[in-house]
Simulated scan of single mutants.
Amino acid sequence: MYFQALQIVSFIIYAAVLLYVLKILRRKSPFRSEPNNTPVSLSVIVPFKNEASNLPALLNSICELKNPNFDVEFIFVNDHSEDDFLDLFSSDLNFPYSIIESNGNGKKEALQTGIEKAKGNYIATTDADCVLPSNWLVDINDAEKNDMLIGPVVVSNHDGSFLSDFQYFESIVLLGLSKSTIKINKPISASGANLIFSKKAFQDVGGYDAHTHQKSGDDYFLLNDFYAKGYSISWLDNASPVYTQPVNSVKKLIRQKTRWVRKTKGKMPFHTVILGAVILLVNFTVVVSTLGVIVGYLPSVFLIANLLKAFIDVLYIQSVSKNEGLFFCFRKAFLSGLIYPFYFATVSVLSLFRGSDW
Rank of each mutant, 00 (worst) to 15 (best):
Q4S: 14
L6W: 00
S10W: 00
L18M: 11
Y20K: 05
R32Q: 05
N37M: 09
L42V: 13
N50H: 08
L55M: 11
L59M: 08
S61P: 12
E73Y: 05
I75Q: 07
D79L: 02
D79G: 13
S81H: 10
D84V: 09
D87V: 10
D92I: 14
L93H: 12
N94K: 12
F95G: 04
L111T: 13
G120D: 09
T126M: 12
D127M: 04
L132G: 05
S134I: 08
N135S: 09
L137S: 01
A143D: 10
M148W: 08
V154S: 01
V155Q: 02
V155H: 02
S164H: 07
F166K: 02
E170C: 03
I172P: 02
K183F: 10
K183E: 15
I184Q: 01
I184E: 00
I184H: 01
N185V: 05
I188L: 15
A190Y: 07
N194C: 06
S198G: 06
K199N: 01
K200H: 08
K200A: 14
G207A: 15
D209E: 04
D209W: 06
T212H: 13
D218T: 07
D219C: 02
F226H: 14
A228Y: 11
W235R: 12
L236P: 12
A239Q: 03
T244W: 03
S249T: 15
T264R: 13
P269R: 06
L275S: 09
G276Y: 02
G276E: 03
A277M: 10
L280Q: 14
N283Y: 03
G296M: 12
S300Y: 15
L303M: 14
L303P: 13
L303K: 08
A310M: 07
F311V: 04
I312E: 03
I312R: 08
I312N: 11
G325H: 10
L338S: 02
I339K: 04
F342Q: 05
Y343H: 08
V349C: 01
S356N: 11
W358D: 09
W358E: 11
